[in-house]
Design a protein around this nucleic acid. Structure first.
Lengths: 183, 183
DNA sequence: CGAAACATGTAACTTGTTACATGATTAT
DNA sequence: ATAATCATGTAACAAGTTACATGTTTCG
């Protein structure tokens, strides 16, 4: 139940239409909670029905016309409640780790190229985060809100750093492997 | 589409019944791909229908009786195919990061306690992984298969290390915050 | 026998994904 | 006018979650 709260956060930061939200999910918010436009429209409908948000424009626009939303007091209260409520961390779920474990059984043919590709992608993502950090969080004078947002970005940077290091190490192991185990 | 392949990997490592698989998913395999018994039974049925696995026992057991499965050649081939096939990494999706971002907007009341709790949980998980490493991967003499499995475990250790460090840093930031932003 | 533990399974629901449909606005 | 883009939406499906149902074996 996190998507509605991601949307509430985004709308509090700035009232938006569905498509604008979709674009923001492709950028900042989507860096730790991704969503497609179909999910967003579905959820906007629910949030409006629950009285957490409302449309901005006085006239009800028809299909195809832009429709912007803002958060109502009940929505802000729900977000505060959710943010403070205790939630268990989700166990790790990673396809590449699973694939390596499978490769230990059925052989490593073909997987090395994808490890390289992932290394590239994670390096790109890391560079993107570092760019954002340079632009949005220059040294000195951070407001408390900025320090929290910086902390979140830092997690992204650290995680991408981890992946680049781990993938590099994995590829070194592959270089060392005498031959494929059982192929 | 990873759960069937997680099950194939587990069954290749050792033929098992549904409940045995469930227990193994609570331990080693679940450390990077979790699943409940309902998911597992559903998926075992599909895998059998597709001809990737078959029951071991000659007699068809009835409901309530143990039913063990083994992987057929087609299943092994499918696992090899999947493991080698290129797949994009999934974007990061983390509730705690989203909660912090929300807290930057609606206030940080209440979230600090859960950060502490998460720090504890991640420390426990890290200790568990390190225990497994000591037990299963003593220094020296690793077979190629073991090196791959060790690499996977290492990712778990590194990720838990990251979270403990990041949460420690987050809590330091909270100690520094003058007062809650906007509450 | 009765209770506990073992073992498999169903059903209903929520969330996420993929493909497609439709109307409105803008630029050539 | 028509093509491209903007914008909202539907439908069907896949995957994951939660609650419950049912039969079997073991042990006191």
């Amino acid at each position: 139940m996190s998507l509605p709260h991601a949307i509430l956060t985004a709308l509090l930061e700035k009232p938006s239409s569905g498509l604008e939200l979709t674009r923001r999910f492709d950028r900042s918010i989507g860096y730790f909670w991704s969503a497609t436009h179909q999910q967003i429209y579905r959820e906007l409908g629910k949030l409006e029905a629950e009285g957490f948000i409302r449309t901005l424009a006085a006239e009800q626009p028809t299909r195809g016309q832009k429709k912007s939303y803002e958060v109502l007091p009940a929505g802000r209260a729900e977000l505060a409640r959710w943010s403070a409520a205790s939630q268990d961390p989700k166990p790790l779920r990673d396809v590449m780790l699973l694939r390596l474990r499978a490769a230990a059984v059925v052989g490593t043919d073909g997987i090395e190229a994808d490890l390289r590709r992932h290394l590239d992608l994670h390096r790109q993502q890391l560079a993107e985060y570092e760019e954002i950090e340079k632009r949005d969080f220059p040294p000195g004078k951070d407001s408390p809100e900025d320090r929290l947002r910086h902390l979140v970005l830092q997690a992204g940077i650290d995680l991408e750093t981890f992946w680049t290091q781990w993938l590099t190490r994995a590829l070194e192991e592959f270089a060392d492997l005498p031959t494929d185990p059982r192929r």
